[in-house]
Design a protein around this nucleic acid. Structure first.
Lengths: 207, 207
DNA sequence: CCTACCGATCGGTAGG
DNA sequence: CCTACCGATCGGTAGG
């Protein structure tokens, strides 16, 4: 019985999927409970059998659909003989996971504007120990390649790289000349790698 | 007469100020025209004498209160004998200008979520020629210090640095341990500087 | 006594 | 620039 999905659980999932898409497309206040119910093929009243309020719907969407479910395993699974190959491998995994969810960042922006980052702060404090462990491992594996940067700073800079790529992509790229987009990720990763690396003896691949 | 501020202009300004604060605090859909009217001490009907729609109010707030009004002059006014001193000087000016506007980034997030970046793309295409000119000058002044990076990529990386600092500050910092915040900007600027610099002959100040 | 859901409607408020 | 008001829709809840 435990592996069967109950009827109620299926309904809950279809509500969350509908809410996820609508929030991303229309924002939080811009999406009504009625729209969510309609998209999930559930009556409005039935929606309140699963969630007490609109805010609870957003919370569930945020936590259960947050890309950290893919990002953390990506960082743990990434391998590489050098710092450079590790970083490129990890980023490849993370970005291809994120590309499955176009505009996922909108959930983060809604969270910041509408909920003053309450949920994301909560999420972050749960995840930071795991992240630190990964960073520590990377630092140990690349002692003579990394400049001395505190682990938390390295973590922040790594996420900052992802954020900065996405935000500049969103904000600048639509009307930007092609030079601005071509190889942009490559250049930004390069700047990050040169930025955290010692040299010599740590050689980065030339470009 | 031209230096006098008309009564209508004063009303318009108080509407924009009220709207700016409310949008930042409550989001776009979360803010009503009635709230804006009340905060601006204007009747709801009177508000529509100045703006045809809520969207027009947001557009005016976005363009007239956007920090680019301070950021572009900051980048033009910044000076420095070395690349490092120029970047630090420019960032100091930009960040202290931005700190006058707590949560200004919320306007950007609203713009991305609610308007699919339409206004910011428009703004960016207007500003990019001026930005490029500045970057070109910086590249010429620091030829033997900068790695070969296309001007637009350098511009993107520079704005990416500002974005990544702000986003990680918002998202991570509230519940993060103190090591995460102390000198965070310094570390991130360092990583950027090492990231774009050649060496030798370009020495950065040690830390 | 449960989970899941219905059609109808509540008191207030939205942009215009 | 205001009072008065519109069609519609909001988030949430009623009894069954």
């Amino acid at each position: 019985m435990s592996e069967e999905i109950t009827r109620g659980e299926r309904t809950r999932q279809s509500i969350l999927l509908a809410a996820h898409d609508l929030f991303i497309q229309q924002g939080y206040h811009g999406t009504s409970m009625r729209q969510i119910a309609r998209e999930a093929s559930v009556a409005l009243g039935g929606l309140y059998n699963h969630f007490d309020s609109k805010e609870q719907v957003f919370e569930a969407v945020f936590f259960e659909f947050h890309p950290y479910h893919e990002v953390l395993p990506s960082m743990q699974a990434a391998r590489g003989e050098t710092l450079e190959s590790y970083v490129r491998n990890a980023l490849d995994r993370i970005l291809s996971a994120l590309q499955q969810r176009p505009n996922f960042m909108n959930l983060m922006f809604i969270e910041i504007v509408e909920f003053k980052s309450a949920h994301v702060n909560q999420l972050f404090s749960q995840l930071v120990p795991y992240e630190i462990e990964i960073i520590h491992q990377v630092q140990q594996d690349n002692q003579d390649c990394l400049r001395p940067i505190p682990p938390l700073m390295l973590l922040r800079a790594f996420f900052g790289l992802i954020f900065s790529y996405y935000l500049t992509e969103i904000v600048f790229s639509t009307q930007a000349p092609p030079e601005f987009r071509e190889d942009a990720l490559e250049y930004m990763v390069d700047i990050f790698l040169y930025g955290v690396s010692r040299e010599p003896p740590c050689e980065l691949s030339k470009r």
